[in-house]
Amino acid sequence: MELTIDRVSKQYKNKIAVDNISMHLDKGVYGLLGANGAGKTTLMRMICGILKPTRGTITLDGLDAETEEYRSRLGYLPQDFGYYPDFTGMDFLLYMAALKGMTRIDARQRAAELLDMVALSEARKKKIKTYSGGMKQRLGIAQALLNEPELLVLDEPTAGLDPKERVRFRNLIAEIGKESIVLLSTHIVSDIEHIADCVLMMKDGQLIYNGKWDETQGDLEAFYLKQFGEEKSYA
C-alpha cells in the first residue's frame, strides 16, 4: 500500500497554497505540522480528491484520487466537520456508511462498534444538535473509520477533545497506523510526538521536513518553533 504524491501544487490566483510537493507514504502514522496558512488543509483536501491540484498527481497503489475506487479506500475527517443537526448519531453513521458503499448489515455492526469505541453508544439515538463539541468531533472520527480505510486523513482531529479523550484517540490512531496510512494534521506538537512514525512539516506551501523524529534529534516542539519564528504551539 503506497500513497504517492507527485509534484503536487495548488495555486489560487496570486497565491501558491501548495508548492510542488512530492512524497511516498507507506503504512504508518504521519504527523503534518505547520502554522495556519501553511497549506496543510489544502494538501489534505487534494489527497481526499475534493480539491483538484493545479499540477501533479496523487495516487494510492496507482489509483488516481479522482476515482471511486480510491475514495472507497479513504477515510476523512475534515477540519470543519459538518453534520446534520436533526440526524441522530446512529443515523449519521448509517448514512455515511451508505455513502461509503457498505452493506446495511455491515454498516449497522460497524456503526455500533465505532459508537462504542468513541464513547457515544448512549447518545446514539440523540440528535446531533444536542451533542457537545467533543461529541461531534468523536462522531466525525467514527465516520472516518467506518469503512476501515487504508488511507485515513485527519485534519485537526484532536480539536475539541478533552485530555482523556486525546489519549484514547492517540492509542486508537497508533493501532490503525499498523495496517493503514494515517495522515493527521495538528498544531499540537505533543500529539505528533506521541503517535507519529514520521513528521511532515509545511511552511508557505512547501514541505520543509519529512522524516522520522527521535529524541536524539532534540525537542520537536523547539524545532517547530524555530521553523515558525515566534508562532506558538498549544501542547
Binding site: 475534493i50 472507497s72 455515511m96
Partner: peptide
C-alpha cells in the same frame, strides 16, 4: 453545513 467534504470524499458521494 460543510457536510460536502465528507460526502464528496466518499465512494458514492460524487455520482
Amino acid at each position: 453545513l460543510r457536510t460536502d467534504q465528507a460526502i464528496l470524499s466518499s465512494r458514492l458521494g460524487k455520482k
